[in-house]
Amino acid sequence: MRHIGTVSRGIRLPVVSKDADLVDIVCTELLKASKSERDLFDFRDGDIVGVTESLLARVQGNYATLEDIAEDTRRLVPEGDVSLIFPILSRNRFGQILKGIIGGVRGKVHILLSYPADEVGNLVIEPRNYYLRAGMLSADLFGEKEYEEVFGRYIHPFTGVDYVKYYREMDPGRVEIHFGNNPLDALKFADTVIVASIHARFLHREILEKAGAKVVSIDQFCTAPRRDGMGYNPEFGLLGSNYTNDGTLKLFPRDSGKFAKELQEELFVRTGKKIEVLVYGDGAFKDPVCGIWELADPVVSPGFTDGLLGMPKEIKLKYIADNAGDKSPEEAVREAIRMKGEMDRFSHSTLGTTPRRLTDLVGSLCDLTSGSGDKGTPVVHISGYFDSYLDE
């Protein structure tokens, strides 16, 4: 009898550089790992290989400079003042983007911060403080002076940064900070609005455009090369970018789906198995201590093979076992699994199986396995993910 279900393995790789043959490197290191005396494993049809987005972006040389961002800002944004709404509070995820935008705006930059937290849960006001003192505010929209008088300053507990001060002091003469949760509040400061939100960007754009604003979002910056060596992403622009150094950002990789397909084909040549592949970034999970969502990328997976489309179709094993009726729990479970191809996904048999996309689930598993530190495992091999209790 089979005793092990899903297994996720981080695969160590050498440090790769620009223009490396990543398909060959990943295949070679996977095969070496499978034959390792310490951790032998076999490849099977239905296995999954995840490759972190940062690895693909590095091989592509997909980097943009602050001047690239400033140049795009001058191209996309008319002269005069600009409102910039709902950025996340982050030095590595948004700080560099903001520096580049400020460098290209020719008037003032009015930054509208959502409160008590940004889109992914970084606080700008401590929740208890907010609920106890919010009644002292003059209005739902307020400035930095009132923010400090009512709530005091807030220092991020993990980074030790006062993000309100950090963003304003990038250019104290031209940057003003405001607090509000209605995107239309941006129009009180300027007719041109840069939407810096990630997951709600389409909604915010639509609301502002219907109000007559000139709107541009950060996924419209750096979408095409305008000089040799410039990083760009035609789909996501600056979304998914990350700090590289004080003058440069790494962008989300391009052509991730094409890479995933090429890697799948080469893995089939070398292993004879149909292995699914995805490129993954941030996982879609929330830290229960600080309340911050990990997902600062626009998607968990920017590219994947066809076998990872859609959502899992599974029964809720414990529900079936607890409601077996005249059958034994074992018999009821086995019968339900055999019949699941005919079941309605809204039936009681699926109760509690939260509907999530396969790429979000698998990409999150990959992100948790590889981490973002010094494990040196930017490739993840997953076996048994699609198996059920009946599979031997």
Rank of each mutant, 00 (worst) to 15 (best):
T6V: 15
S8E: 06
G10E: 01
P14A: 15
K18V: 00
D21M: 00
L22A: 02
L22I: 00
D24F: 15
C27K: 07
L30W: 06
L31T: 15
S34Q: 04
S34P: 05
K35P: 12
S36L: 13
D39W: 15
F41N: 10
D45C: 13
G46R: 03
D47V: 14
D47L: 09
T52C: 11
A64M: 02
D72S: 12
D72G: 12
T73W: 01
R75Q: 12
L76K: 03
V77P: 09
P78W: 10
E79M: 05
D81P: 06
V82G: 11
S83F: 00
L84K: 03
F86R: 05
P87D: 06
P87G: 07
S90R: 01
S90C: 00
G95N: 00
G95T: 00
V105A: 04
K108A: 06
I111L: 05
I111F: 08
I111S: 04
Y115V: 00
G121P: 00
N129Q: 11
A134N: 15
M136S: 15
E149G: 03
V150D: 13
F151H: 04
R153C: 08
P157A: 02
G160D: 08
D162H: 06
Y166K: 03
R168F: 04
M170T: 08
P172V: 09
H178D: 08
P183Q: 04
D185V: 07
L187N: 03
A190C: 07
A190L: 03
A190H: 11
I194L: 04
S197Y: 13
S197D: 08
H199D: 08
H199V: 08
A200F: 13
R201L: 11
E206G: 12
A211R: 10
V215E: 09
V215N: 08
I218V: 14
I218T: 10
C222H: 05
P225G: 02
R226I: 15
R227V: 05
D228M: 12
M230P: 09
G231W: 01
G231C: 00
P234T: 00
E235A: 14
G240H: 14
G240R: 12
G240N: 13
S241E: 03
G247C: 07
G247I: 05
L251W: 03
K258N: 14
F259Q: 04
A260K: 05
K261G: 12
K261H: 14
K261I: 14
Q264E: 12
E266L: 09
R270E: 04
E276W: 02
Y280T: 12
Y280F: 14
G283L: 05
F285T: 15
E294I: 09
L295T: 00
V299R: 10
P302H: 10
G303E: 09
T305E: 08
G307A: 04
L309Q: 11
M311E: 07
P312C: 01
E314V: 06
K316R: 12
Y319P: 11
I320N: 01
A321R: 07
D326S: 15
K327R: 11
E330S: 06
M339I: 03
M339N: 06
M339T: 01
G341P: 03
E342F: 13
R345K: 09
T350A: 07
G352K: 02
T359I: 09
D360A: 01
G373M: 14
G376H: 02
I382Y: 04
S383I: 10
Y385G: 13
L390Y: 06
